[in-house]
């Protein structure tokens, strides 16, 4: 028995919101007896607050966001959890063309060139990510650390909405960013930047977006929750078939969803940077623990009960129930 059948789910107009949109447009929610309204939101902060305060039943979220919400890192703590990974990969780091040319002129490996420019030549670099509690943010820091840079001392960070990143870099206000598509391949195509690393290279097979609800909602609506997860998993599998790519893009272009943004998503160009929807949808507490350590490292979180927070936030047991058909 479904506890509730009329549901409101939140999404941002991004490529990896596709599973929610496909589940609705292809009737997968309806097949589960669910009447789902998709609400296009304007920011991750809105999504967090509206899910926390019960104005949305659930949402597609950045993988670190339900953990940050549970810990109360940026807002009053509301425990959240995920039983389904919606996508993996899809991010990339792009540096501006002028910066790339300067680094090239040193004729050194990239990391050495960056250290020389910043530490010897006092170049002050300004990089952007979309949100402080995002894989983009931690991946950019990881990549800098892989090149022996100290993110907190060597550079400046800021948050910029995805659709404004490229124009800010072209205006010389940013030297680079870490973001999802189409803003990386578009920079290359316009000759204003170069992709220097993909999320897949930095953290292979890591989760990117998850479907999250509050713990109290999950406890009140166990069957409706599983029905939602089943419909979304079906959408992820559907998206995983190359034959559906064109139709998927067509559905994403519909007015309530990605609108004009979808017009920038030319399949051939972004293919290498496509989020993977069906690679593996099982949430792994080890991934959550890894994200929590990132939060500690950049001093967003000072707690230490990593294992417990990870196990409560990423719930493979829920995934296993829908995957086994129970």
């Amino acid at each position: 028995m479904l506890e509730t059948t009329t549901l409101k789910l939140g999404f941002l107009p991004l490529l990896d919101s596709a599973p929610l949109i496909i589940a609705r447009e292809r009737g997968f929610f309806a097949d589960e007896g669910l009447d789902v309204i998709l609400v296009r939101e304007h920011s991750w902060a809105n999504i967090r607050d509206r899910v926390s305060w019960g104005l949305l039943d659930g949402a597609s979220m950045l993988a670190p966001l339900p953990l940050a919400a549970s810990l109360g890192l940026a807002a009053p703590a509301v425990p959240m959890l995920t039983g389904l990974v919606l996508s993996r990969h899809g991010n990339a780091i792009t540096l501006s063309e002028p910066l790339c040319q300067r680094l090239e002129s040193y004729q050194l490996p990239l990391g050495e060139a960056l250290r020389l420019a910043i530490r010897e030549e006092q170049l002050s670099l300004h990089l952007a990510t979309v949100y402080p509690y995002s894989c983009h943010h931690y991946q950019l820091r990881s990549w800098l650390e892989q090149h022996q840079l100290e993110p907190d001392n060597d550079l400046c960070f800021s948050a910029v909405p995805p659709n404004r990143m490229l124009e800010k870099m072209e205006a010389g206000e940013l030297d680079g960013y870490c973001v999802g598509e189409p803003w990386n391949s578009l920079a290359e195509q316009r000759g204003s930047g170069r992709i220097v690393a993909t999320g897949e290279q930095i953290w292979p097979n890591f989760c990117e977006k998850v479907f999250a609800v509050t713990r109290s909602w999950a406890e009140r609506n166990p069957n409706s929750h599983l029905a939602l997860l089943r419909a979304l998993k079906r959408a992820c599998d559907w998206l995983g078939q190359p034959a559906h790519r064109a139709e998927a893009l067509e559905l994403l272009t519909l007015p309530p969803y990605l609108d004009r943004l979808a017009g920038l998503l030319e399949p051939e160009r972004i293919l290498p940077l496509m989020p993977q929807f069906h690679l593996n949808n099982r949430p792994d507490p080890a991934d959550a623990a890894f994200l929590l350590r990132q939060m500690q490292q950049c001093r967003q979180w000072s707690g230490d009960d990593i294992e417990q927070v990870a196990a409560e936030g990423f719930r493979p047991d829920l995934y296993d129930r829908i995957a086994s058909g129970n």
Partner: peptide, 29 residues
Amino acid sequence: DMDGPDRDTLDSMAAMSRTEPRPIVFFAE
């Protein structure tokens, strides 16, 4: 206004300003 894309910029400023002399805080906190 929550209908603009810029709330995340403020969330980010709040997260990054914690070590500064006059940090900014989300009102709910």
